[in-house]
Amino acid sequence: MLKELTRETKATMGIYEPRRDKVYGLLAEFSDPGALLHAAEGVREAGYKHFDTHSPFPVHGMDRAMGLGNSKVGYITLVGGITGLAVATWLQWWTGGVDYPLDISGKPFFAWEPSIPIMFELTILFAALAAVAGMFALNGLPRPYNPLFYSENFSRVTDDAFFLHVAASDGRFDMEKTEQLLRDLGALYVEVIEDLGTEQGPAGDVRGEAVEKAQA
């Protein structure tokens, strides 16, 4: 039960478990963002859950095409902001009003009016740090090792190439059928990605057995 939960949580971060034969998934390249969007819709409609698209920039409408809901970063940020506000209030009240009260021209030891600037600043600080930390945590980053990096072509994902990856951990994954589906959706080629781990030497020495296929 817990194991299943962990697996699903990791899957939302894009971290999937390889199959017993080390197959991590199938990686398909598409020609442009439009084709990628269309393919993501097709893969979702076929019932796949463990898949993701990879692109050099966020593709408009992809969240809907993939059937992803709203990001949770907002809630984390809200919690961060409230924490910052509480810390700032407590800090100014406790240091000035409790721990070492200083009587300066009869002014109150603690008042909310002069405390506002620091309350504001710390709210922003904590909220901003929470937004960034939350974003990286939800994304499962930093993740220096990723089996996808074994693919030679995948290095163009941050430049001008558009990929769709279906993970082998998905219940519906089937080497032939999934590949056929991706090709029917207009993949330029489909490649098998193997999770060879990091022990095999530095990236680039060992490549997954790329099964390159010409455009369908």
Partner: peptide, 30 residues
């Protein structure tokens, strides 16, 4: 940090970026 352009990542990334912009705006004025 192992960034790979995954849409699952972009989704959280864009949200965080928007929130940072929304936080930095009153901050810079302050």
């Amino acid at each position: 940090l192992g960034w790979n352009g995954a849409n699952r990542h972009w989704r959280n990334y864009e949200k965080a970026y928007l929130l940072l912009a929304a936080l930095a705006t009153p901050l810079v004025l302050s």
